[in-house]
């Protein structure tokens, strides 16, 4: 094993510095806010008002412009939380634990939205709000995992210990992510398989999937934006009184 494989890039260690994250994150924040607003507005208006209706489902299929991004993000955020937690444990980086903590509420929200919109869509399409099939059940487990991570993180006062405990639960919980993703292929489910894969072309016309692509990208921007805002807020809390912060332009107003 050569040394170079284990070498981490410079930015990796810079991101671990609260001051650097606060400043760099602050400069990124407005761009993600603009991108999130633009992409979501464009995608939602196109998808909900102008995209053609489905030949079988009519207009009810349009709920996918909310459902698919929420479901995708619910899993991405969990993975992000576990990776941030692992980085925090391995390199002892406080900022990484803060990032992981910032993921919890937004991830749980996306999961709840995915479950709710899925139920609303399921009634007219399948004939049932809820079915205990593998996809739906594993997604409900994901919501419970978020709840567990949230409770554990709040229960411990010491931020370092809370960060470590939360990270381990999040890392173990990632086992559920491939189960959610492949549930529709491994088992008989009522939920349909993915309309999008990296290998095949989408099973719907461009007028239907381009708006979906926009809302997905917009949701990712919302996620990054929320992480930046919440992590920077935690930096302010924990670093209050620190020299770099007291002399910062955000504090002095200079």
């Amino acid at each position: 094993m050569t040394q170079s494989i284990w070498r981490m890039p410079r930015w990796f260690h810079q991101m671990g510095s609260p001051k650097w994250f606060y400043d760099f994150g602050g400069s990124l924040q407005p761009w993600f806010a603009i991108a999130a607003f633009a992409l979501l507005t464009w995608g939602m208006v196109w998808g909900l008002a102008f995209a053609p209706a489905d030949y079988q489902q009519g207009n009810s299929f349009r709920i996918m412009y909310v459902h698919v991004p929420a479901a995708l993000l619910s899993q991405s955020v969990f993975l992000g939380m576990a990776v941030a937690g692992a980085v925090g444990i391995i390199w002892k980086i406080k900022v990484a634990f803060m990032v992981a903590r910032s993921c919890i509420a937004i991830g749980a929200t996306f999961t709840a939205i995915a479950l709710l919109t899925g139920a609303i869509w399921g009634k007219p399409t399948w004939g049932a709000y809820w079915v205990w099939d593998a996809r739906l059940t594993s997604t409900l487990v994901l919501l419970f995992l978020y709840a567990g991570v949230m409770a554990l993180n709040q229960a411990i006062t010491d931020r370092q210990i809370a960060g470590k405990a939360t990270a381990i639960l999040a890392i173990v919980g990632t086992i559920n992510i491939p189960i959610i993703k492949y549930s529709v292929e491994w088992w008989n489910t009522l939920h349909q398989s993915s309309s999008f894969t990296l290998t095949a072309k989408p099973s719907m016309p461009a007028d239907m999937y381009l708006p979906l692509l926009l809302t997905v990208l917009g949701s990712y921007c919302v996620f990054v934006l929320v992480i930046l805002i919440r992590t920077r807020a935690q930096i302010l809390q924990t670093q209050s009184g620190a020299n770099w912060l007291m002399q910062h332009r955000d504090i002095t107003g200079a």
Binding site: P52, Y55, F61, T125, V131, L190, S193, M208
Partner: peptide, 17 residues
Amino acid sequence: DEVLAKHDEKYMPPEVT
């Protein structure tokens, strides 16, 4: 005593159909 419709992953505008 209960019949649920299973939707596939394909979507199409009615004009195309």
